[in-house]
Amino acid sequence: MTGCPARYDEELGLWAVDEPAEVREVLLDPETFRPDNAVVAHSPLSVKALRVLSGVGFALPPTLANNAGPSHRPIRAAVARFFSPARVAAVEPLTRRLVAERVDVALAGLRSGPVDLVEVIAAEPPALVVLDMLGLRDVDVPALKAWSRDSLELFWGWPDEDRQLELAHSAAEFYGWLRKRVVAARRLPGEDLFGVLVRLGLSDEEVCAVAYFLLIAGQETTTQLISTAFLRMIGRVDDAAAVVEEVLRESSSVPTWRRVTAGVTTVGDVELPAGAPILLGLTGHGGPADLAFGLGIHRCLGAGLARLEARVALETAAPLLAVVQAVEAEPPMIELLSFRAPARVLVALDPARLQPC
């Protein structure tokens, strides 16, 4: 991208900005490059899909990722307390135990044939950890995982009208569940995420909007990060933390993010019109690993947690990864506008690695 700080992508209908220095400048200037389009569906939703969503009052008012207004700071501060460095450090034993239990299941399964490391190991621990940190109990984790994957596809994928309708029903079910949690919190506000947001004075729609994407981003993107790290770590004997940083630099689960220009402006020497949608390349363009989590007032609140969970997953699964081989040279991928990861990582025991030296 040297010499081309911004280029218009006809297929995506977005201005692509990949140069790390330019990406950094955009992220640090939310007044000029606003986050208003951060969670807008990339593929315009059909009337039928919109009708399903409106039936449950689905709304995503400005709260966190899509908010550059005065309400952003108090909302972010309230949520950030759940992810303080001390709380993140304290959750490591739980993370290690959850992953270790699943590694044992995977090792036992390998005696019978190939095992999918995404399904068996990477899928559920990030959800269980973030739910614990947010103080949320009695959550159907498989349902949360399905809702999360469907919502990511609905908002960042290219579903046709029939698929949109399926995904909209899933998103509506998720949103209906969130509304019930808000109602319960208003009746008896506790110290969990919903209670904190209710006491902050947010509307029902604002509480649901915060929880909707927090419960998705707080675990599904980490599952994807771990899945990519597992694929890279097969057959390697490397420091787990170093592998995590490598993945964040080169192929993070969130490779891009969106912004929109508030007025006529420039990126480098390229003039962009007002209302220009921008797609920022966060990873894979020679930038630092930390850029994968964004910068400035919208930097990912769970950056420290994601790093810890991915590191612990690699450390705990190291004995397994040392004796397996990938079944598929190129596994099927989750390929969305802003999310990318292997949909599965099938492995089998590698006879060569099981033999004594």
Rank of each mutant, 00 (worst) to 15 (best):
T265F: 10
L107G: 04
P255W: 12
G218L: 05
E330C: 06
E271K: 05
D9S: 12
A106S: 13
V17H: 02
E166I: 04
G304V: 05
A172I: 13
L144W: 04
P288A: 11
I278P: 05
F33S: 05
L272Q: 06
R199A: 04
F33N: 06
V115F: 05
L134F: 09
A90V: 06
S71Q: 12
A318C: 05
L193F: 03
F293V: 02
V327M: 00
D204K: 07
A329P: 11
V207E: 08
E92V: 09
K48S: 15
A217V: 07
P61E: 09
G284C: 13
G55I: 01
A78E: 11
P288M: 03
A326W: 00
I226P: 09
C208R: 07
E119V: 08
S71E: 08
R307D: 09
Y8I: 01
M233N: 06
A38M: 11
L336M: 08
V327R: 11
R97Y: 06
A41Y: 09
W15M: 08
L94K: 12
P125M: 10
E124Y: 04
A80V: 12
P142A: 10
G195K: 00
L165W: 11
S112W: 03
V327Y: 09
F230I: 07
L28D: 07
T265Q: 00
T223G: 04
G235D: 01
L128H: 09
L144G: 11
L354A: 11
F82G: 05
A172M: 13
H169M: 14
S227F: 02
R76D: 11
P93L: 10
V56Y: 14
G69P: 02
I278V: 14
F293H: 01
A108H: 09
R73P: 01
A318D: 14
D36N: 09
P114L: 07
P93E: 10
E124G: 00
C300K: 04
L45N: 01
R344L: 06
L167E: 02
E173P: 02
H169L: 15
S148R: 02
V103T: 10
E271Y: 04
V210S: 00
F83Y: 14
V260C: 06
L291M: 14
A49F: 07
L336P: 04
F194K: 02
P74F: 03
G195Y: 02
R258W: 07
V79E: 00
L45V: 05
V120F: 00
S46I: 13
Y8N: 03
R76F: 11
G268T: 03
V91D: 03
L60Y: 01
L152A: 11
A68Y: 04
R299S: 10
A127N: 10
G69R: 09
P5W: 05
V23S: 03
D160S: 12
Q224G: 15
E173C: 06
T265M: 02
I121G: 00
T283N: 02
G287F: 05
M1P: 08
F83S: 12
R181N: 02
D162H: 14
V39I: 15
A341S: 15
